[in-house]
Design a protein around this nucleic acid. Structure first.
Lengths: 241, 241
DNA sequence: CGCTTCTTTGACTGCGATCAATGCGCGTGG
DNA sequence: CCACGCGCATTGATCGCAGTCAAAGAAGCG
């Protein structure tokens, strides 16, 4: 399979302008490709968890576990995303990365990633910006999960996911291939799978969405945004300096 | 009052080594001092919310509001913290900063901050690291608030706050000056003030803490960590590269 | 000293968790 | 081609944690 790092370069350029030279440097990074499925941890690929990982295809998620075994999913990754940026700068990582259903990952030697960032300030700035947006999303999730009732919470998530997918060209006319189980969605939103099921039914009954397996369609985007109190400004789409 | 930016430089050096030259550059930044109390927004100081703000004294908090008026507090700031780093790199900010009880803030012209980061890679790296830790804390809060019951949630918060205060030398032998109301604590943890009160009472009855107004004392640190499932590794204290 | 803000306590309610069973789709092997 | 198993979705019944409403103390501050 002829994978390359173009999705990473393209995704970064959404945050901060990446010149032709910078782009070339990204495309000529050494990397190894790996396909991962099921319950195999992506974050444990590479050498001693210090290599830089980029999602080439599919979806992945970032999760944390409590010592009593509860899970929370703190981010969903889309092809092109850097998966463990903190691993490059810190000695350790406070989360795990798992494939959502299936994922293809590029493993870039840590040394090469460090050099890339040192030699290309524009790339470093774009990566920095992506981390800032990542943090902003985490803050919005905190607000969503601690101060909104389940219906609004689910609606907010659907709006956000749709917006992010659309921005990456992975969503045509409101139809989302939400390759996520209700179990995973529950761990994203801090609810139980049973309650997720009931809440989705309620949104369907209210005519806001339709569903077919894992495919979602937003029928009434404005109403859904209203229910979810969704305002996309925190995603900082095309509002970077 | 003879304030200077030394707390900022000191705090940054906890993340990444800051040389004598770098430190000097920080200390010679131009800035204006402002004392803020009550319900006046810190994030609206400076010119068009684009200047860089550093907390010189006291405590402040970062908050977000839902459109229906609910509040969530997504971070607590300690003297030395940069309060709006994203404002320097993004066109907008997705949160507000408020004083906790009272706070003194340095207003640094945006231009000067940008130049500082451009000319001093070590400082930029330290700032980047501080953002990564900030994001890691947000992820831990997400886990805490969506997957732990109220007692564990409060216990976890007390452990974290104590650890951060101790690391900054603001806490002697387990006694914390928690200059925070139960209302604010509720908005930190996604609970109600009434329930915070009951939960604190329960922790007190269990012999884990004592309280006197806003002063807290942790009586049984190990038991509290146990109840809160607290593991400080996500704070990345002295484990940066 | 009086006002306001914060804390504490009690009674009741309800949202979402829990427990449990059934249904459904898909891949795998007989 | 069907039987079986497994993971995921759906539905019902019941429970309990935390929210809500309300009122009375306590503490800080002009």
């Amino acid at each position: 399979m002829p994978y390359d790092l173009a999705p990473f370069a393209t995704q970064l350029s959404a945050y901060s302008p990446i010149g032709a030279k910078d782009r070339k440097a990204i495309l000529s990074l050494p990397f190894e490709t790996r396909a991962v499925r099921g319950s195999r941890r992506i974050s444990h690929l590479g050498h001693s968890q210090r290599d830089f990982l980029v999602l080439l295809d599919g979806f992945s998620l970032r999760q944390k576990l409590t010592s009593s075994g509860n899970r929370h999913i703190s981010a969903l990754n889309i092809a092109g995303d850097g998966l463990n940026i903190s691993a490059i700068f810190m000695n350790d990582v406070d989360y795990e990365v798992m494939p959502m259903s299936g994922a293809t990952v590029a493993i870039i030697p840590r040394e090469a990633a460090v050099n890339l960032f040192q030699d290309h300030p524009a790339i470093f700035l774009a990566v920095f910006s992506s981390v800032l947006v990542d943090a902003a999303i985490a803050r919005e999730w905190l607000l969503n999960q601690s101060r909104r009732a389940s219906k609004a919470r689910v609606a907010h998530f659907l709006c956000e996911h749709s917006a992010r997918m659309t921005a990456r060209g992975l969503c045509k006319s409101g139809v989302i291939d939400l390759g996520i189980t209700q179990d995973q969605l529950a761990d994203v939103l801090g609810l139980t799978a049973v309650h997720i099921n009931r809440t989705l039914s309620a949104l369907k009954t209210a005519g806001l969405i339709t569903r077919n397996g894992r495919y979602f369609e937003i029928r009434d985007a404005l109403a859904l945004q209203d229910v979810g109190e969704f305002n996309p400004s925190y995603l900082y789409m095309s509002t970077h300096r």
